[in-house]
Design a protein around this nucleic acid. Structure first.
Length: 137
DNA sequence: GCCAACGTTGGC
DNA sequence: GCCAACGTTGGC
């Protein structure tokens, strides 16, 4: 099982929105960036995903899991774009903010900090553990 | 609202 | 194949 982080603007699609979808989950559509798409192609069933709110929150707020591997993005006819489906697993008891990640030297190599604009990114197991710990899960 | 970073497009 | 122009994202 691998670990990932996916960003969303809470005004467009929030953690609460994913929770509301329940076990059926939701397509992670709308990605129009090759690097991000390639990450999704590598995802496997059951992989864990940090749900990150950009803009106002700038924090990891929940944990989701992959329930369908990469398939065509239903929001476009362009065959280049694919997406996975995810569902909510659990919220973080305490959101882990970007500021907290920046402050922790163990997270200094995270893509979140080094490639701010990449919306789908891999997370190392040790980074996953640190953030879960800070998040109270 | 601004700006830096950076991905994409199109002309050459 | 290069590079300038442009558009988008995300942090501040």
């Amino acid at each position: 099982m691998r670990y990932w982080l996916m960003k969303s603007e809470p005004d467009a699609f929030s953690w609460g929105g994913l929770v509301a979808k329940g076990a059926a989950g939701e397509e992670w559509d709308g990605v129009r960036n090759y690097q991000a798409r390639n990450m999704m192609r590598e995802m496997g069933m059951g992989d864990r995903v940090f749900f990150y709110h950009s803009q106002s929150d700038k924090a990891v707020v929940g944990i989701a899991e992959v329930i369908a591997t990469a398939h065509p993005d239903s929001t476009t006819d362009d065959p280049r774009w694919e997406c996975v489906d995810v569902r909510a697993v659990a919220p973080l008891k305490q959101p882990v903010t970007l500021e907290m990640c920046k402050a922790d030297p163990r997270l200094s190599e995270m893509a979140l900090l080094k490639q701010a604009r990449l919306s789908v990114q891999p997370v190392r197991p040790e980074e996953w553990a640190v953030i879960c710990d800070m998040g109270g899960v």
